[in-house]
Design a binder for these strands. Structure first.
Lengths: 307, 307
DNA sequence: TTGTACGCGTTATCAC
DNA sequence: GTGATAACGCGTACAA
Protein backbone atom coordinates (compact mmCIF):
# COMPACT_ATOMS: atom_id res chain seq x y z
CA UNK A 1 0.00 0.00 0.00
CA UNK A 2 1.43 3.28 -1.09
CA UNK A 3 2.05 5.99 1.50
CA UNK A 4 2.40 9.71 1.22
CA UNK A 5 6.14 9.26 1.35
CA UNK A 6 6.07 7.01 -1.69
CA UNK A 7 4.22 9.67 -3.62
CA UNK A 8 6.76 12.23 -2.46
CA UNK A 9 9.65 10.06 -3.56
CA UNK A 10 8.20 9.25 -6.95
CA UNK A 11 7.21 12.79 -7.81
CA UNK A 12 10.40 14.19 -6.38
CA UNK A 13 8.51 16.66 -4.19
CA UNK A 14 8.34 16.79 -0.45
CA UNK A 15 5.82 15.09 1.77
CA UNK A 16 4.42 18.47 2.70
CA UNK A 17 3.69 19.42 -0.87
CA UNK A 18 1.94 16.15 -1.45
CA UNK A 19 -0.04 16.66 1.73
CA UNK A 20 -1.01 20.12 0.52
CA UNK A 21 -2.31 18.72 -2.70
CA UNK A 22 -4.27 16.00 -0.94
CA UNK A 23 -5.94 18.48 1.35
CA UNK A 24 -6.45 21.17 -1.23
CA UNK A 25 -4.27 23.66 0.57
CA UNK A 26 -2.93 26.75 -1.19
CA UNK A 27 0.66 27.53 -2.15
CA UNK A 28 1.24 24.83 -4.72
CA UNK A 29 1.83 25.65 -8.38
CA UNK A 30 -0.73 24.15 -10.69
CA UNK A 31 1.99 22.32 -12.53
CA UNK A 32 3.21 20.41 -9.48
CA UNK A 33 -0.30 19.86 -8.30
CA UNK A 34 -1.26 18.20 -11.55
CA UNK A 35 1.81 16.04 -11.57
CA UNK A 36 1.24 14.89 -8.02
CA UNK A 37 -2.43 14.24 -8.62
CA UNK A 38 -1.56 12.14 -11.59
CA UNK A 39 0.90 9.99 -9.67
CA UNK A 40 -1.63 9.64 -6.87
CA UNK A 41 -4.10 8.28 -9.39
CA UNK A 42 -1.56 6.01 -11.01
CA UNK A 43 -0.40 4.58 -7.73
CA UNK A 44 -3.95 4.20 -6.53
CA UNK A 45 -2.93 6.05 -3.43
CA UNK A 46 -5.49 6.81 -0.71
CA UNK A 47 -4.50 8.59 2.52
CA UNK A 48 -4.76 6.31 5.53
CA UNK A 49 -7.73 7.38 7.62
CA UNK A 50 -6.38 6.01 10.87
CA UNK A 51 -3.19 8.01 10.54
CA UNK A 52 -5.23 11.10 9.84
CA UNK A 53 -7.38 10.45 12.87
CA UNK A 54 -4.34 10.01 15.06
CA UNK A 55 -2.81 13.17 13.76
CA UNK A 56 -5.94 15.26 14.07
CA UNK A 57 -7.26 13.69 17.24
CA UNK A 58 -10.70 13.25 15.67
CA UNK A 59 -12.43 10.42 13.87
CA UNK A 60 -15.70 11.77 12.40
CA UNK A 61 -17.31 8.88 14.16
CA UNK A 62 -19.83 8.72 16.97
CA UNK A 63 -20.97 5.77 19.05
CA UNK A 64 -24.64 5.13 19.72
CA UNK A 65 -25.55 3.17 22.82
CA UNK A 66 -28.78 1.31 22.36
CA UNK A 67 -30.07 -1.80 24.11
CA UNK A 68 -31.25 -3.67 21.00
CA UNK A 69 -31.30 -3.54 17.25
CA UNK A 70 -34.49 -4.26 15.30
CA UNK A 71 -36.97 -2.90 17.82
CA UNK A 72 -39.24 -0.13 16.61
CA UNK A 73 -38.48 2.40 19.34
CA UNK A 74 -34.72 2.14 18.98
CA UNK A 75 -34.72 1.76 15.23
CA UNK A 76 -36.63 4.99 14.85
CA UNK A 77 -34.18 6.85 17.04
CA UNK A 78 -31.34 5.30 15.10
CA UNK A 79 -32.86 6.41 11.84
CA UNK A 80 -32.94 10.02 12.99
CA UNK A 81 -29.45 9.95 14.44
CA UNK A 82 -28.14 8.34 11.32
CA UNK A 83 -29.82 10.83 9.05
CA UNK A 84 -28.34 13.84 10.83
CA UNK A 85 -24.95 12.16 11.10
CA UNK A 86 -24.90 11.42 7.39
CA UNK A 87 -25.77 14.98 6.55
CA UNK A 88 -22.85 16.20 8.61
CA UNK A 89 -20.43 13.64 7.27
CA UNK A 90 -20.22 11.65 10.47
CA UNK A 91 -20.26 7.88 10.82
CA UNK A 92 -22.39 6.02 13.33
CA UNK A 93 -21.09 3.01 15.20
CA UNK A 94 -23.61 0.75 16.92
CA UNK A 95 -22.97 -0.04 20.55
CA UNK A 96 -25.59 -2.55 21.70
CA UNK A 97 -25.84 -2.87 25.45
CA UNK A 98 -28.61 -5.38 26.04
CA UNK A 99 -29.25 -3.21 29.12
CA UNK A 100 -26.13 -4.66 30.71
CA UNK A 101 -24.34 -2.09 32.88
CA UNK A 102 -20.96 -3.75 32.45
CA UNK A 103 -21.18 -3.84 28.70
CA UNK A 104 -22.14 -0.20 28.83
CA UNK A 105 -19.14 0.61 31.00
CA UNK A 106 -16.96 -1.12 28.43
CA UNK A 107 -18.19 1.29 25.79
CA UNK A 108 -17.46 4.22 28.04
CA UNK A 109 -13.91 2.94 28.37
CA UNK A 110 -13.65 2.73 24.60
CA UNK A 111 -14.85 6.28 24.49
CA UNK A 112 -12.13 7.38 26.85
CA UNK A 113 -9.68 5.60 24.57
CA UNK A 114 -10.72 8.16 21.96
CA UNK A 115 -12.57 5.59 19.91
CA UNK A 116 -15.41 8.04 19.20
CA UNK A 117 -15.74 11.79 18.93
CA UNK A 118 -18.94 11.63 20.91
CA UNK A 119 -21.61 9.37 22.33
CA UNK A 120 -25.36 9.29 21.99
CA UNK A 121 -27.05 7.31 24.71
CA UNK A 122 -30.50 6.25 23.58
CA UNK A 123 -31.10 4.39 26.83
CA UNK A 124 -28.69 3.83 29.64
CA UNK A 125 -28.11 0.94 32.04
CA UNK A 126 -25.94 2.83 34.51
CA UNK A 127 -26.70 5.76 36.76
CA UNK A 128 -26.81 9.16 35.20
CA UNK A 129 -23.85 10.47 37.19
CA UNK A 130 -21.54 7.82 35.79
CA UNK A 131 -21.60 9.52 32.42
CA UNK A 132 -20.53 12.92 33.65
CA UNK A 133 -17.02 11.59 34.29
CA UNK A 134 -16.69 10.86 30.60
CA UNK A 135 -17.72 14.27 29.35
CA UNK A 136 -14.02 15.16 29.22
CA UNK A 137 -13.54 12.84 26.25
CA UNK A 138 -16.21 14.46 24.11
CA UNK A 139 -19.89 15.40 23.99
CA UNK A 140 -22.42 12.93 25.37
CA UNK A 141 -26.09 13.28 24.53
CA UNK A 142 -29.02 11.38 26.01
CA UNK A 143 -32.29 10.47 24.37
CA UNK A 144 -33.98 10.31 27.77
CA UNK A 145 -34.72 12.86 30.39
CA UNK A 146 -31.39 13.69 32.02
CA UNK A 147 -32.11 16.26 34.68
CA UNK A 148 -29.07 17.10 36.71
CA UNK A 149 -26.66 15.77 34.13
CA UNK A 150 -24.12 18.01 32.45
CA UNK A 151 -24.78 16.26 29.15
CA UNK A 152 -27.23 17.34 26.50
CA UNK A 153 -30.54 15.55 26.00
CA UNK A 154 -33.17 15.28 23.27
CA UNK A 155 -36.01 13.09 24.44
CA UNK A 156 -39.58 12.07 23.76
CA UNK A 157 -42.18 13.58 26.05
CA UNK A 158 -43.33 10.33 27.58
CA UNK A 159 -44.59 12.11 30.65
CA UNK A 160 -46.68 14.51 28.64
CA UNK A 161 -48.16 11.84 26.44
CA UNK A 162 -49.04 9.66 29.39
CA UNK A 163 -50.85 12.48 31.07
CA UNK A 164 -52.78 13.06 27.89
CA UNK A 165 -53.70 9.39 27.56
CA UNK A 166 -54.61 9.00 31.20
CA UNK A 167 -56.88 12.02 31.17
CA UNK A 168 -58.41 10.62 28.00
CA UNK A 169 -59.07 7.43 29.94
CA UNK A 170 -60.81 9.43 32.64
CA UNK A 171 -62.96 11.23 30.08
CA UNK A 172 -63.99 7.88 28.71
CA UNK A 173 -65.10 6.78 32.14
CA UNK A 174 -62.38 4.19 32.60
CA UNK A 175 -62.28 2.70 36.09
CA UNK A 176 -59.26 0.47 36.19
CA UNK A 177 -56.04 0.84 34.24
CA UNK A 178 -53.45 -1.79 33.35
CA UNK A 179 -49.87 -0.93 32.43
CA UNK A 180 -47.14 -2.72 30.54
CA UNK A 181 -43.55 -1.69 31.18
CA UNK A 182 -40.22 -2.46 29.61
CA UNK A 183 -37.87 -2.76 32.52
CA UNK A 184 -38.29 -3.58 36.18
CA UNK A 185 -35.02 -1.79 36.67
CA UNK A 186 -34.92 1.15 39.02
CA UNK A 187 -32.85 2.99 36.45
CA UNK A 188 -35.76 3.41 34.12
CA UNK A 189 -37.10 6.84 34.84
CA UNK A 190 -39.88 6.21 32.38
CA UNK A 191 -41.17 3.30 34.41
CA UNK A 192 -41.08 5.30 37.61
CA UNK A 193 -42.88 8.19 36.00
CA UNK A 194 -45.51 5.92 34.51
CA UNK A 195 -46.38 4.45 37.86
CA UNK A 196 -46.52 7.82 39.56
CA UNK A 197 -48.82 9.20 36.89
CA UNK A 198 -51.16 6.23 36.97
CA UNK A 199 -51.51 6.68 40.70
CA UNK A 200 -52.11 10.36 40.28
CA UNK A 201 -54.90 9.93 37.75
CA UNK A 202 -56.29 6.69 39.20
CA UNK A 203 -55.74 6.73 42.96
CA UNK A 204 -56.83 3.09 43.24
CA UNK A 205 -54.06 2.05 40.80
CA UNK A 206 -51.51 -0.35 42.26
CA UNK A 207 -48.38 -1.93 40.89
CA UNK A 208 -50.29 -5.20 40.88
CA UNK A 209 -51.82 -4.09 37.61
CA UNK A 210 -48.45 -3.82 35.92
CA UNK A 211 -47.07 -6.36 33.49
CA UNK A 212 -43.30 -6.02 33.66
CA UNK A 213 -40.55 -6.78 31.18
CA UNK A 214 -42.57 -6.37 28.03
CA UNK A 215 -39.76 -5.69 25.62
CA UNK A 216 -40.28 -9.02 24.00
CA UNK A 217 -43.32 -9.79 21.90
CA UNK A 218 -43.58 -13.25 23.42
CA UNK A 219 -44.77 -11.44 26.53
CA UNK A 220 -47.83 -10.19 24.70
CA UNK A 221 -50.03 -13.22 25.22
CA UNK A 222 -49.11 -13.52 28.86
CA UNK A 223 -49.93 -9.88 29.29
CA UNK A 224 -53.38 -10.36 27.77
CA UNK A 225 -54.14 -13.26 30.09
CA UNK A 226 -52.88 -11.24 33.01
CA UNK A 227 -55.08 -8.26 32.26
CA UNK A 228 -58.12 -10.41 31.56
CA UNK A 229 -57.81 -11.96 34.96
CA UNK A 230 -57.39 -8.62 36.64
CA UNK A 231 -60.34 -7.16 34.76
CA UNK A 232 -58.89 -3.83 33.71
CA UNK A 233 -60.94 -1.75 31.29
CA UNK A 234 -58.05 0.16 29.76
CA UNK A 235 -54.43 -0.67 29.03
CA UNK A 236 -51.52 1.66 28.46
CA UNK A 237 -49.03 -0.42 26.54
CA UNK A 238 -45.34 0.32 26.07
CA UNK A 239 -45.51 -0.19 22.33
CA UNK A 240 -47.92 -0.71 19.46
CA UNK A 241 -46.80 -4.26 18.91
CA UNK A 242 -47.48 -5.33 22.47
CA UNK A 243 -50.78 -3.47 22.24
CA UNK A 244 -51.66 -5.33 19.06
CA UNK A 245 -50.97 -8.75 20.49
CA UNK A 246 -52.99 -8.00 23.58
CA UNK A 247 -55.90 -6.78 21.49
CA UNK A 248 -55.77 -9.92 19.38
CA UNK A 249 -56.05 -12.09 22.47
CA UNK A 250 -59.26 -10.35 23.45
CA UNK A 251 -60.77 -11.17 20.05
CA UNK A 252 -64.39 -12.30 20.27
CA UNK A 253 -64.96 -10.82 23.71
CA UNK A 254 -65.08 -7.22 24.78
CA UNK A 255 -61.61 -5.72 24.63
CA UNK A 256 -60.49 -2.93 26.92
CA UNK A 257 -59.35 0.41 25.55
CA UNK A 258 -55.74 -0.22 24.55
CA UNK A 259 -53.29 2.53 23.68
CA UNK A 260 -49.89 1.94 22.10
CA UNK A 261 -46.81 4.07 22.00
CA UNK A 262 -45.00 4.28 18.71
CA UNK A 263 -47.42 4.77 15.86
CA UNK A 264 -46.58 1.67 13.86
CA UNK A 265 -48.36 0.23 10.90
CA UNK A 266 -49.72 -2.67 12.92
CA UNK A 267 -51.52 -0.22 15.21
CA UNK A 268 -52.97 1.62 12.27
CA UNK A 269 -54.20 -1.60 10.71
CA UNK A 270 -55.92 -2.70 13.89
CA UNK A 271 -57.35 0.72 14.62
CA UNK A 272 -55.41 1.07 17.87
CA UNK A 273 -55.00 4.51 19.41
CA UNK A 274 -51.37 5.39 19.86
CA UNK A 275 -48.90 8.17 20.48
CA UNK A 276 -46.44 9.42 17.93
CA UNK A 277 -43.43 10.50 19.94
CA UNK A 278 -41.56 11.75 16.87
CA UNK A 279 -38.59 9.58 17.62
CA UNK A 280 -36.90 10.17 14.30
CA UNK A 281 -36.90 13.90 14.89
CA UNK A 282 -35.69 13.19 18.40
CA UNK A 283 -32.69 11.28 17.07
CA UNK A 284 -31.86 14.08 14.67
CA UNK A 285 -31.94 16.61 17.47
CA UNK A 286 -29.72 14.40 19.59
CA UNK A 287 -27.08 14.33 16.90
CA UNK A 288 -27.29 18.07 16.44
CA UNK A 289 -26.73 18.60 20.14
CA UNK A 290 -23.61 16.51 19.88
CA UNK A 291 -22.52 18.43 16.81
CA UNK A 292 -23.02 21.80 18.47
CA UNK A 293 -21.48 20.53 21.69
CA UNK A 294 -24.59 21.73 23.43
CA UNK A 295 -25.84 20.46 26.74
CA UNK A 296 -29.33 21.76 26.21
CA UNK A 297 -32.25 19.57 27.22
CA UNK A 298 -34.85 19.43 24.47
CA UNK A 299 -38.22 17.80 24.94
CA UNK A 300 -39.77 16.58 21.71
CA UNK A 301 -43.49 17.37 21.19
CA UNK A 302 -45.76 14.36 20.67
CA UNK A 303 -49.05 13.67 18.97
CA UNK A 304 -51.86 11.59 20.46
CA UNK A 305 -53.57 9.62 17.72
CA UNK A 306 -57.02 8.66 18.97
CA UNK A 307 -58.57 6.62 16.15
CA UNK B 1 -4.71 13.27 28.49
CA UNK B 2 -1.99 11.00 29.79
CA UNK B 3 0.06 9.01 27.30
CA UNK B 4 2.16 5.92 27.67
CA UNK B 5 5.22 8.16 27.84
CA UNK B 6 3.79 10.02 30.81
CA UNK B 7 3.33 6.76 32.62
CA UNK B 8 6.87 5.78 31.75
CA UNK B 9 8.23 9.07 33.04
CA UNK B 10 6.28 8.96 36.28
CA UNK B 11 7.08 5.37 37.12
CA UNK B 12 10.66 5.75 35.99
CA UNK B 13 10.46 2.73 33.69
CA UNK B 14 10.66 2.64 29.94
CA UNK B 15 7.82 2.97 27.50
CA UNK B 16 8.41 -0.62 26.47
CA UNK B 17 7.89 -1.92 29.96
CA UNK B 18 4.70 0.04 30.34
CA UNK B 19 3.48 -1.27 27.02
CA UNK B 20 4.26 -4.78 28.17
CA UNK B 21 2.17 -4.30 31.27
CA UNK B 22 -0.73 -2.86 29.31
CA UNK B 23 -0.79 -5.75 26.91
CA UNK B 24 -0.11 -8.41 29.49
CA UNK B 25 3.13 -9.46 27.92
CA UNK B 26 5.68 -11.54 29.83
CA UNK B 27 9.09 -10.51 31.11
CA UNK B 28 8.02 -7.97 33.69
CA UNK B 29 8.63 -8.49 37.41
CA UNK B 30 5.46 -8.51 39.43
CA UNK B 31 6.78 -5.64 41.49
CA UNK B 32 7.20 -3.29 38.54
CA UNK B 33 3.98 -4.49 37.02
CA UNK B 34 2.06 -3.60 40.16
CA UNK B 35 3.70 -0.24 40.43
CA UNK B 36 2.92 0.61 36.82
CA UNK B 37 -0.64 -0.62 37.09
CA UNK B 38 -1.15 1.56 40.10
CA UNK B 39 0.10 4.68 38.36
CA UNK B 40 -2.05 3.83 35.33
CA UNK B 41 -5.06 3.77 37.59
CA UNK B 42 -4.10 6.94 39.43
CA UNK B 43 -3.49 8.84 36.24
CA UNK B 44 -6.68 7.50 34.71
CA UNK B 45 -4.63 6.43 31.76
CA UNK B 46 -6.29 4.61 28.85
CA UNK B 47 -4.29 3.59 25.76
CA UNK B 48 -5.35 5.54 22.68
CA UNK B 49 -7.27 3.24 20.37
CA UNK B 50 -6.46 5.17 17.21
CA UNK B 51 -2.74 4.90 17.87
CA UNK B 52 -3.15 1.20 18.44
CA UNK B 53 -5.08 0.84 15.22
CA UNK B 54 -2.41 2.70 13.30
CA UNK B 55 0.30 0.60 14.81
CA UNK B 56 -1.46 -2.70 14.26
CA UNK B 57 -3.11 -1.88 10.97
CA UNK B 58 -6.46 -3.14 12.22
CA UNK B 59 -9.49 -1.50 13.79
CA UNK B 60 -11.87 -4.24 14.96
CA UNK B 61 -14.49 -2.41 13.04
CA UNK B 62 -16.55 -3.37 10.02
CA UNK B 63 -18.74 -1.25 7.80
CA UNK B 64 -22.21 -2.35 6.80
CA UNK B 65 -23.66 -0.96 3.59
CA UNK B 66 -27.41 -0.82 3.73
CA UNK B 67 -29.84 1.38 1.79
CA UNK B 68 -32.00 2.43 4.75
CA UNK B 69 -32.32 2.22 8.48
CA UNK B 70 -35.62 1.35 10.13
CA UNK B 71 -36.98 -0.93 7.44
CA UNK B 72 -37.80 -4.49 8.50
CA UNK B 73 -35.74 -6.31 5.92
CA UNK B 74 -32.58 -4.36 6.59
CA UNK B 75 -33.07 -4.11 10.31
CA UNK B 76 -33.29 -7.85 10.60
CA UNK B 77 -30.09 -8.33 8.67
CA UNK B 78 -28.47 -5.68 10.80
CA UNK B 79 -29.58 -7.44 13.93
CA UNK B 80 -27.88 -10.65 12.87
CA UNK B 81 -24.70 -8.96 11.73
CA UNK B 82 -24.57 -6.99 14.91
CA UNK B 83 -25.08 -10.02 17.09
CA UNK B 84 -22.24 -11.96 15.51
CA UNK B 85 -19.99 -8.91 15.48
CA UNK B 86 -20.61 -8.31 19.17
CA UNK B 87 -19.80 -11.90 20.01
CA UNK B 88 -16.49 -11.57 18.24
CA UNK B 89 -15.63 -8.22 19.72
CA UNK B 90 -16.10 -6.28 16.52
CA UNK B 91 -17.85 -2.94 16.08
CA UNK B 92 -20.36 -2.23 13.37
CA UNK B 93 -20.45 1.09 11.56
CA UNK B 94 -23.58 1.95 9.58
CA UNK B 95 -23.06 3.03 6.00
CA UNK B 96 -26.43 4.06 4.59
CA UNK B 97 -26.47 4.32 0.79
CA UNK B 98 -30.05 5.26 -0.08
CA UNK B 99 -29.33 3.11 -3.15
CA UNK B 100 -27.11 5.86 -4.50
CA UNK B 101 -24.16 4.46 -6.47
CA UNK B 102 -21.97 7.47 -5.75
CA UNK B 103 -22.53 7.36 -2.04
CA UNK B 104 -21.69 3.71 -2.17
CA UNK B 105 -18.49 4.42 -4.07
CA UNK B 106 -17.59 6.91 -1.35
CA UNK B 107 -17.78 4.14 1.23
CA UNK B 108 -15.58 1.93 -0.90
CA UNK B 109 -13.03 4.72 -0.94
CA UNK B 110 -13.22 4.95 2.83
CA UNK B 111 -12.65 1.25 2.91
CA UNK B 112 -9.52 1.58 0.83
CA UNK B 113 -8.40 4.26 3.28
CA UNK B 114 -8.33 1.47 5.84
CA UNK B 115 -11.34 2.83 7.67
CA UNK B 116 -12.77 -0.67 8.18
CA UNK B 117 -11.35 -4.15 8.49
CA UNK B 118 -14.08 -5.45 6.24
CA UNK B 119 -17.35 -4.66 4.55
CA UNK B 120 -20.75 -6.32 4.57
CA UNK B 121 -22.90 -5.29 1.65
CA UNK B 122 -26.54 -5.97 2.45
CA UNK B 123 -27.66 -4.54 -0.87
CA UNK B 124 -25.54 -2.86 -3.48
CA UNK B 125 -26.15 0.02 -5.86
CA UNK B 126 -23.16 -0.60 -8.10
CA UNK B 127 -22.29 -3.49 -10.35
CA UNK B 128 -20.94 -6.60 -8.75
CA UNK B 129 -17.55 -6.37 -10.42
CA UNK B 130 -16.84 -2.97 -8.89
CA UNK B 131 -16.42 -4.57 -5.51
CA UNK B 132 -13.78 -7.08 -6.57
CA UNK B 133 -11.25 -4.24 -6.93
CA UNK B 134 -11.61 -3.53 -3.23
CA UNK B 135 -11.04 -7.06 -2.00
CA UNK B 136 -7.37 -6.13 -1.54
CA UNK B 137 -8.30 -3.92 1.42
CA UNK B 138 -10.08 -6.63 3.35
CA UNK B 139 -12.90 -9.17 3.15
CA UNK B 140 -16.17 -8.11 1.52
CA UNK B 141 -19.33 -10.14 2.06
CA UNK B 142 -22.66 -9.78 0.27
CA UNK B 143 -26.12 -10.52 1.60
CA UNK B 144 -27.38 -11.09 -1.91
CA UNK B 145 -26.64 -13.64 -4.57
CA UNK B 146 -23.17 -12.80 -5.86
CA UNK B 147 -22.38 -15.38 -8.50
CA UNK B 148 -19.14 -14.66 -10.26
CA UNK B 149 -17.85 -12.41 -7.50
CA UNK B 150 -14.72 -13.26 -5.57
CA UNK B 151 -16.39 -12.09 -2.38
CA UNK B 152 -18.30 -14.21 0.08
CA UNK B 153 -22.08 -14.18 0.26
CA UNK B 154 -24.77 -15.20 2.72
CA UNK B 155 -28.19 -14.55 1.26
CA UNK B 156 -31.87 -15.32 1.62
CA UNK B 157 -33.28 -17.79 -0.86
CA UNK B 158 -35.68 -15.41 -2.55
CA UNK B 159 -35.71 -17.49 -5.68
CA UNK B 160 -36.64 -20.64 -3.81
CA UNK B 161 -39.34 -18.98 -1.78
CA UNK B 162 -40.87 -17.37 -4.83
CA UNK B 163 -41.05 -20.66 -6.61
CA UNK B 164 -42.76 -22.12 -3.62
CA UNK B 165 -45.28 -19.31 -3.42
CA UNK B 166 -45.97 -19.29 -7.15
CA UNK B 167 -46.60 -23.01 -7.26
CA UNK B 168 -48.86 -22.54 -4.26
CA UNK B 169 -50.74 -19.96 -6.31
CA UNK B 170 -51.12 -22.47 -9.12
CA UNK B 171 -52.43 -25.10 -6.73
CA UNK B 172 -54.98 -22.62 -5.50
CA UNK B 173 -56.17 -22.07 -9.05
CA UNK B 174 -54.92 -18.52 -9.32
CA UNK B 175 -55.22 -17.09 -12.81
CA UNK B 176 -53.55 -13.72 -12.70
CA UNK B 177 -50.70 -12.62 -10.46
CA UNK B 178 -49.70 -9.11 -9.40
CA UNK B 179 -46.22 -8.26 -8.14
CA UNK B 180 -44.78 -5.47 -6.06
CA UNK B 181 -41.07 -4.72 -6.35
CA UNK B 182 -38.64 -2.54 -4.54
CA UNK B 183 -36.43 -1.13 -7.26
CA UNK B 184 -36.85 -0.51 -10.95
CA UNK B 185 -33.10 -0.60 -11.11
CA UNK B 186 -31.44 -3.12 -13.40
CA UNK B 187 -29.02 -3.85 -10.61
CA UNK B 188 -31.60 -5.63 -8.55
CA UNK B 189 -31.13 -9.28 -9.33
CA UNK B 190 -34.11 -10.06 -7.12
CA UNK B 191 -36.40 -8.00 -9.30
CA UNK B 192 -35.14 -9.67 -12.44
CA UNK B 193 -35.54 -13.10 -10.94
CA UNK B 194 -39.02 -12.32 -9.71
CA UNK B 195 -40.19 -11.32 -13.15
CA UNK B 196 -38.62 -14.35 -14.80
CA UNK B 197 -40.25 -16.69 -12.31
CA UNK B 198 -43.66 -15.11 -12.65
CA UNK B 199 -43.45 -15.59 -16.37
CA UNK B 200 -42.32 -19.15 -15.95
CA UNK B 201 -45.23 -20.10 -13.67
CA UNK B 202 -47.81 -17.83 -15.30
CA UNK B 203 -46.97 -17.52 -19.00
CA UNK B 204 -49.57 -14.77 -19.44
CA UNK B 205 -47.82 -12.64 -16.81
CA UNK B 206 -46.55 -9.31 -18.08
CA UNK B 207 -44.60 -6.52 -16.47
CA UNK B 208 -47.77 -4.45 -16.69
CA UNK B 209 -48.91 -6.23 -13.55
CA UNK B 210 -45.95 -4.98 -11.55
CA UNK B 211 -46.11 -2.15 -9.06
CA UNK B 212 -42.61 -0.73 -8.89
CA UNK B 213 -40.74 1.18 -6.20
CA UNK B 214 -42.62 -0.18 -3.25
CA UNK B 215 -40.04 0.43 -0.57
CA UNK B 216 -42.15 3.13 0.92
CA UNK B 217 -45.37 2.38 2.72
CA UNK B 218 -47.04 5.37 1.12
CA UNK B 219 -47.01 3.29 -2.04
CA UNK B 220 -49.32 0.72 -0.45
CA UNK B 221 -52.61 2.42 -1.23
CA UNK B 222 -51.60 3.18 -4.77
CA UNK B 223 -50.63 -0.43 -5.21
CA UNK B 224 -54.04 -1.60 -4.03
CA UNK B 225 -55.84 0.69 -6.45
CA UNK B 226 -53.52 -0.47 -9.20
CA UNK B 227 -54.19 -4.13 -8.59
CA UNK B 228 -57.93 -3.63 -8.20
CA UNK B 229 -58.07 -2.04 -11.58
CA UNK B 230 -56.03 -4.76 -13.17
CA UNK B 231 -58.13 -7.44 -11.54
CA UNK B 232 -55.41 -9.77 -10.27
CA UNK B 233 -56.48 -12.62 -8.01
CA UNK B 234 -53.17 -13.03 -6.19
CA UNK B 235 -50.42 -10.65 -5.15
CA UNK B 236 -46.83 -11.42 -4.29
CA UNK B 237 -45.74 -8.45 -2.21
CA UNK B 238 -42.18 -7.44 -1.42
CA UNK B 239 -42.88 -7.14 2.28
CA UNK B 240 -45.49 -7.86 4.92
CA UNK B 241 -46.19 -4.20 5.49
CA UNK B 242 -46.97 -3.48 1.88
CA UNK B 243 -49.07 -6.66 1.85
CA UNK B 244 -50.96 -5.49 4.91
CA UNK B 245 -51.79 -2.10 3.49
CA UNK B 246 -52.97 -3.61 0.24
CA UNK B 247 -55.18 -6.08 2.10
CA UNK B 248 -56.67 -3.27 4.14
CA UNK B 249 -57.64 -1.40 1.01
CA UNK B 250 -59.61 -4.38 -0.21
CA UNK B 251 -61.64 -4.42 3.00
CA UNK B 252 -65.32 -5.04 2.44
CA UNK B 253 -64.83 -6.55 -0.98
CA UNK B 254 -63.20 -9.79 -1.99
CA UNK B 255 -59.47 -9.55 -1.50
CA UNK B 256 -56.99 -11.47 -3.62
CA UNK B 257 -54.58 -13.94 -2.10
CA UNK B 258 -51.76 -11.75 -0.80
CA UNK B 259 -48.40 -13.11 0.34
CA UNK B 260 -45.80 -11.05 2.19
CA UNK B 261 -42.12 -11.54 2.59
CA UNK B 262 -40.69 -10.99 6.01
CA UNK B 263 -42.85 -12.57 8.65
CA UNK B 264 -43.72 -9.49 10.66
CA UNK B 265 -46.22 -9.09 13.44
CA UNK B 266 -48.57 -7.10 11.24
CA UNK B 267 -48.83 -10.04 8.86
CA UNK B 268 -49.53 -12.43 11.70
CA UNK B 269 -52.24 -10.14 13.08
CA UNK B 270 -53.96 -9.88 9.73
CA UNK B 271 -53.62 -13.56 8.95
CA UNK B 272 -51.47 -12.93 5.90
CA UNK B 273 -49.38 -15.74 4.48
CA UNK B 274 -45.71 -14.85 4.36
CA UNK B 275 -42.20 -16.18 4.00
CA UNK B 276 -39.67 -16.21 6.78
CA UNK B 277 -36.34 -15.74 5.05
CA UNK B 278 -34.37 -16.08 8.28
CA UNK B 279 -32.68 -12.77 7.75
CA UNK B 280 -31.21 -12.58 11.21
CA UNK B 281 -29.44 -15.87 10.71
CA UNK B 282 -28.39 -14.63 7.31
CA UNK B 283 -26.73 -11.59 8.85
CA UNK B 284 -24.91 -13.73 11.38
CA UNK B 285 -23.59 -15.96 8.65
CA UNK B 286 -22.45 -12.93 6.67
CA UNK B 287 -20.38 -11.70 9.58
CA UNK B 288 -18.89 -15.12 10.10
CA UNK B 289 -17.82 -15.27 6.46
CA UNK B 290 -16.03 -11.97 6.96
CA UNK B 291 -14.46 -13.24 10.15
CA UNK B 292 -13.20 -16.41 8.53
CA UNK B 293 -12.15 -14.53 5.43
CA UNK B 294 -14.20 -16.99 3.45
CA UNK B 295 -15.60 -16.35 0.01
CA UNK B 296 -18.14 -19.13 0.28
CA UNK B 297 -21.65 -18.52 -1.04
CA UNK B 298 -24.26 -19.63 1.48
CA UNK B 299 -27.93 -19.75 0.67
CA UNK B 300 -30.15 -19.44 3.74
CA UNK B 301 -33.14 -21.84 3.95
CA UNK B 302 -36.57 -20.22 4.21
CA UNK B 303 -39.94 -21.15 5.60
CA UNK B 304 -43.24 -20.57 3.83
CA UNK B 305 -45.92 -19.68 6.36
CA UNK B 306 -49.30 -20.39 4.82
CA UNK B 307 -51.86 -19.35 7.42
C1' DT C 1 6.03 28.83 -2.77
C1' DT C 2 8.55 24.79 -0.92
C1' DG C 3 10.78 21.54 2.28
C1' DT C 4 12.71 19.84 6.84
C1' DA C 5 11.68 17.98 10.98
C1' DC C 6 8.85 16.81 14.61
C1' DG C 7 4.46 15.38 16.95
C1' DC C 8 0.35 12.24 17.28
C1' DG C 9 0.50 7.41 20.85
C1' DT C 10 1.43 2.74 20.33
C1' DT C 11 3.74 -1.59 19.26
C1' DA C 12 7.69 -4.37 17.79
C1' DT C 13 12.58 -5.24 17.07
C1' DC C 14 16.77 -5.85 18.83
C1' DA C 15 20.57 -5.06 21.69
C1' DC C 16 21.95 -5.33 26.40
C1' DG D 1 14.14 -8.80 32.32
C1' DT D 2 14.68 -4.30 30.50
C1' DG D 3 15.14 -0.29 27.54
C1' DA D 4 16.38 2.58 23.24
C1' DT D 5 14.60 3.25 18.97
C1' DA D 6 12.42 2.59 14.76
C1' DA D 7 8.29 1.89 12.55
C1' DC D 8 2.94 3.03 11.62
C1' DG D 9 1.19 7.36 8.01
C1' DC D 10 -0.14 11.87 8.23
C1' DG D 11 -0.33 16.97 9.37
C1' DT D 12 1.95 21.20 10.26
C1' DA D 13 5.09 24.70 12.65
C1' DC D 14 8.78 26.83 11.17
C1' DA D 15 12.56 27.85 8.46
C1' DA D 16 14.09 28.98 3.96
Amino acid sequence: MATIRDIAKITGYSVTTVSRVINNHPYVTKEKKDHINQVIKEMNYVPNQTARNLSSGKSQNIGVLVPFINQPYYDQMLKGINKAAFENDYRVTLLPTDFDPEIEMGYLEEFSAKGFDGLIVVTRANHLEVFDDYRQYGPIVFCEEADGSHCGAAYPDITGSMMKVLSYFKDKGIKRVGLTLGRDNRLSCNSKTAIALCQEYFPEFTTDDIMWNCHDLTKGKAAAAFFKERGVDAILANGDEIAAIILKEYEGGKAPLIVGRDNLLVGEMLGLPTVDHQLIQCGETAFNLFYEESSEKIKQPFEFIKR
